[in-house]
């Protein structure tokens, strides 16, 4: 039994890290966008499109690394749409984000059919390697969390990015280019959202599956809020979500009967709702989050 326990624990940790990776990358993307003052519910769509992009570019090049770049490329394009709509044209950021989410669903379904002539999923493509027992993307996610924190809290660039999300007019009067910083934040969320997608399609699997983001972009947003819009907070929050997703695997392994697996699959979503409703700790959004900035002349 003790050996079995060790195995189960190890399985649980590995499963948690795997489940955490896409959530963490997407949550980091959310942090950059919202710290700069742009609400980004488009993360779900960016992630889905990124997952498709990763598979597609890996498929045509035969290289998973090209696939990774492709995911970033597609992610930045999707985020770019959101950035232009919400920064340049002062669009309602929730509406723009929703449009992009719908666009991503349609686009990936269409391309799945168009390129591979099949619904459901793509053929197998080259995937990213494991380093030791874990996939490359898992290491990348945690390294990027630390890099993000340093960038946001230890560099002038980060201070300026945050100032633009709190009080853009104040930043403007100090000569900080509000629009430039906001574009930077949103486009970075495209990079990270794209990477999150790649971790799904060519990291944890080796194919694109229709609708494979499955709400993870929204869970990542909840984790971002739970983590108080801080990259390290996002690490803690996404680990919690990752763990709750992995529980179902463990309970099955341990042979515990009577609790339907759907219950465990439900857990992360229930947790998300509780967090968004403010039951689990209070966290305060950047003051100008979601408010378009208009310049007077």
């Amino acid at each position: 039994m003790t050996v079995a326990f060790g195995t189960i624990l190890l399985t649980f940790i590995m499963a948690t890290l795997r489940a955490t990776t896409p959530l963490l990358l997407a949550a980091l993307g959310g942090v950059f966008s919202e710290r700069a003052g742009v609400v980004n519910i488009a993360l779900e769509g960016i992630m889905l499109a990124g997952a498709w992009g990763a598979a597609y570019f890996s498929f045509i090049s035969g290289s998973a690394w090209i696939g990774l770049l492709g995911a970033v490329f597609i992610g930045v394009i999707m985020a770019g749409l959101h950035a232009v709509a919400s920064i340049k044209y002062y669009a309602d950021q929730v509406v723009s984000g929703t449009a992009i989410n719908l666009l991503a669903v349609g686009f990936t379904e269409f391309m799945l059919n168009r390129i591979w002539g099949q619904a459901g999923s793509s053929p197998e493509v080259a995937s990213l390697p494991n380093i030791g027992p874990l996939n490359f993307m898992i290491y990348l996610a945690f390294i990027l969390a630390i890099v993000s924190w340093v960038a946001l809290y230890r560099t002038p660039w980060g201070l300026r990015l945050r100032s633009v999300g709190e009080h853009p007019l104040a930043a403007d009067t100090l000569g900080i280019d509000v629009f430039k910083m906001r574009y930077a934040g949103v486009l970075l969320s495209g990079v990270l959202g794209g990477l999150a997608g790649a971790s799904l399609s060519i990291g944890l699997l080796s194919r694109f599956v229709d609708g494979m983001s499955a709400g993870k972009g929204f869970i990542a947003l909840a984790a971002m809020i739970f983590g108080k819009w801080n990259p390290l907070g996002a690490v803690g929050a996404t680990l919690l979500f990752g763990a709750s997703q992995s529980l179902s695997v463990i309970f099955q392994l341990m042979g515990i009967q009577g609790i339907p697996t759907q219950f465990f699959n439900m857990l992360p979503y229930v947790l998300t709702m509780l967090i968004l409703a403010g039951f689990v700790g209070k966290s305060v959004a950047p003051a100008a989050d979601g408010i378009p900035y208009r310049k007077t002349n």
Binding site: L159, S163, A170, L174
Partner: peptide, 29 residues
Amino acid sequence: VHQHFMLIPVFTVAENITLGKEVTRNRFL
């Protein structure tokens, strides 16, 4: 000094004063 202060409430005094003209060492704050 504007009538409605151009300060960021969640930043510290030093952060507000130096914002946009930060003190750096090796490109870090």
